[in-house]
Design a binder for these strands. Structure first.
Length: 691
RNA sequence: GGCGGUGUAGCUCAGUUGGUUAGAGCAGCGGAAUCAUAAUCCGCUUGUCGGGGGUUCGAAUCCCUCCACCGCUACCA
């Protein structure tokens, strides 16, 4: 068999947070693939690193009063500890904040410059004057310029879906300081990706580098279809620089500007390889400029864009090999719901490991993962039953029910007639191998378990426990157990990319290290058998519950921490001085006031009134109230119609100059232009009482 | 809105070069066994294959249409 040279990467974990079970889908997927390739005898390197640059790390370091270097060093240690806990094995773990990466970024940059792909443009960006930093979109909130929904993120509106630039927001607020940012113009460098359009069209659409749905997606969103009536769409320029301050590498020929983190992050794959090569007497070009070497990236669907357009473009410009394949997977949901930090379903890797064994999750993910981009669901009831019944009940059970009968004798000296069981399982190996190769782990697991389902009935029929009672049948007993243990050993080899622990223990039991796939094709004979020890623990529901509980507590503690940080919002004391607190009231007093959610169904100016608007409020159904409100200076009638407010519904009606007013709408502020109506949160209904 | 994806037993999913009564595991029910971590084995049960229409001798599979759900919609790390 010719040995392949395969270089594998997983997405680089961001140094701004802990690893959770969602990340592990990818890392376990990658690790299984790498272990599989090594088991097949190929030379396979897993090159990995932390992604360390960007605004988020910078802000965090400031908040915690320490250097970025300290923050990322801590994250690096934590990440590697978690990976070790989950038996994820890589050949090098670097950091994008390394000398190697800086040097390679410079080289790639120069080649992109030389290719004439870089141009300068001025960009308007919001600047937080208190923090002294430009604000990434996600650090700005404000009113949507389109539908006027308040408190929307900087880049698009969650209400109307409008996309806009943060600079277009009405009343933008920096989420870092709470202050109002100002618009500043800065020079940015862009890469004209469109120049590479033809190349990218070709690379993404042919050659099987991508899953078909990914190729379709790229065409639909970015590249366009040159053969359609609309033709190809131009690719937008990629904003590749960030002005100071920024945590990253300064661009050598553009002082005061830094490479955007997504420029240097993928180059981290190269840098990590460089580190490995330096240690092992190899060269970078032997892996990245060598047609005989394959390059495989494993990523989540959220970062498709960067890995399938920019990254190939960068590699192409710099004269490196292009990825052989980009393997893209879906997200993890927990019990059918999106993972949520606040609810505590974003289980941290370390929390999981406090309560449960890594093998269980590795197997569960393997049994769910296919080659497509579907999300996979972590359902704990299924998790418990699957791991227990497949691994303990079927696979390990084969050894635990037969090993002790041959502890004295060892395995038979030649492999007995098993009715073709071993042979047919051996020939199933090809299909299982293909499933691993194609990342169809769920198929591989299904095929393997089918084999286990044939092995157990064999033991059942052979009844070794009865053979043991008859001294004349010693040989038969040994033969039956030899078969059972060989079928077991075969399964373990097939499972070994997923379950490294089990492989090791099986090796000890049978006195033979299991290191190569081909061992599954030949039975083991004559080997001594060690005393059987538990190879895998059953998952108990209480352990799962304990983990869930622990995670919930962590989530609560974290949100409490965020609240304690609220002193970063330094609000003025003036309002309390202007209007001091009134006397205490009882709940009964409060309940006398009937506050209700109401919808403004009509609003109009009142002839002759300086301050008043006439509002018609609906409490649902036919319940209408007419209210005169002193908010003319602050609101236009048009902005009011349709919105929900809170009103005092049981206020005694009062005859005013312009008509009868049947209530009050609640608002804060001193008056005049500074009046702010209360708005109930999304979901409340007109007529609902406010308690 | 556009694009992509998904929709098969209570649950998780197989099943497309169109072909006999649609499959597996888990769950459920009934039995057996007692070597094994209450593990195992045998048997049984469950389906308008999202709806409708079309092509065909024949459709879960091909075409059209509708519905539902999910994701993406780039200068976000």
């Amino acid at each position: 068999m010719n040995q392949r040279k395969i270089l594998v990467t997983a997405a680089l974990p961001y140094a701004n947070g802990p690893i959770h079970l969602g990340h592990l889908v990818e890392y376990i997927q990658t690790d299984i693939w790498v272990r599989y390739q090594k088991l097949r005898g190929h030379q396979c390197l897993f090159m990995w690193a932390d992604d360390t640059h960007g605004t988020a790390i910078m802000i965090r370091a400031r908040k915690e009063g320490r250097s970025e270097e300290e923050v990322i060093a801590e994250a690096n240690a934590e990440h590697q500890r978690d990976f070790a806990g989950f038996q994820i094995q890589y050949d090098n773990y670097g950091s994008t904040h390394s000398d190697e990466n800086k040097k390679l970024c410079g080289e790639v940059w120069q080649s992109i410059r030389d290719a004439g792909l870089v141009k300068e443009k001025d960009v308007d960006q919001l600047f937080d004057t208190e923090q002294g930093t430009f604000l990434a979109d996600r650090f700005v909130r404000g009113t949507c310029p389109e539908c006027k929904a308040e408190d929307q993120p900087g880049d698009n509106c969650s209400k109307c879906g409008n996309t806009h630039s943060p600079a277009e927001l009405i009343d933008p607020v920096s989420t870092l300081s709470g202050s109002t940012p100002e618009i500043r113009t800065a020079k940015h460098l862009f890469i004209e990706l469109e120049q590479l359009h033809e190349f990218l069209e070709d690379w993404t659409q042919t050659g099987d580098h991508l899953q078909p749905e990914v190729a379709n997606y790229l065409r639909g969103h970015f590249l366009g279809d040159p053969e359609s009536t609309e033709g190809a769409k131009p690719l937008r320029d990629w904003d590749i620089s960030r002005p100071s301050p920024y945590f990253g590498f300064e661009i050598p020929d553009c002082p005061g500007n830094f490479w955007y983190v997504w420029f240097d992050a993928p180059i981290g794959y190269l840098a990590s390889t460089q580190q490995w090569c330096d240690r092992n007497g190899d060269t970078l070009d032997n892996w990245w400029r060598n047609d005989a070497a394959e390059i495989h990236h494993f990523i989540g669907k959220d970062i498709t864009y960067f890995h399938t357009l920019f990254w190939p473009g960068m590699l192409k410009s710099a004269g490196y090999s292009l990825p052989t394949k980009v393997h893209i997977h879906g997200f993890l949901t927990v019990n059918g719901e999106k993972m949520s930090k606040s609810v505590g379903t974003a289980f941290k890797a370390s929390t999981y490991l406090d309560h449960l064994p890594p093998a269980a999750l590795r197997y569960y993910y393997a049994s769910k993962l296919g080659s497509r981009l579907d999300d996979i669901d972590l359902n704990f009831d299924e998790f418990i039953s699957k791991v227990n019944s497949d691994l303990v009940g079927k696979v390990v059970n084969l050894a635990s029910r037969s090993a002790k009968f041959v502890k004295e004798t060892g395995l038979s000296s030649s492999y007995p007639d098993d009715g073709g069981l071993f042979e047919s399982a051996a020939s199933a190996g090809n299909e299982i191998a293909r499933a691993y190769e194609n990342c169809d782990y769920n198929k591989a697991m299904r095929l393997i378990l089918e084999l286990a389902d044939k092995a157990n009935p064999f033991v059942e029929n052979a009844e070794p426990w009865n053979l043991k009672k008859d001294p004349a049948k010693t040989q038969e007993l040994q033969d039956v157990c030899t078969i059972a243990l060989n079928l077991f050993r075969q399964l373990v080899i097939y499972l070994s990319p997923v379950l490294p622990d089990l492989v090791e223990k099986t090796g000890e039991l049978l006195n033979e290290p299991l290191t190569h796939w081909d061992q599954s094709q030949t039975p083991l004979t004559g080997s001594p058998v060690a005393k059987f020890k538990h190879m895998m623990k059953r998952i108990e529901e209480k352990d799962v519950r304990a983990m869930e509980e622990a995670s919930k507590i962590e989530a609560e503690q974290e949100s409490a921490l965020v609240e304690n940080n609220s002193d970063q919002f330094s609000d003025s004391e003036q309002p309390m001085i202007d209007e001091p607190m009134t006397d205490e009231c009882t709940i009964e007093d409060f309940m006398k006031v009937d506050l209700r959610v109401a919808r403004i169904v009509n609003a109009e100016h009142v002839e002759g009134a300086r301050k008043l608007l006439k509002l018609t409020l609906s409490l649902g159904g036919e319940h209408r109230k007419q209210v005169f409100a002193g908010i003319k200076a602050a609101y236009e009638p048009d902005q009011l119609v349709g919105r929900l407010v809170v009103m005092v519904a049981n206020l005694k009606p009062r005859q005013m100059k312009f008509g009868l007013s049947e209530g009050m709408v609640c608002a804060s502020g001193p008056g005049g232009e500074e009046v702010f109506l209360l708005t109930p949160d999304e979901g409340s209904k007109p007529g609902q009482r406010v308690h």
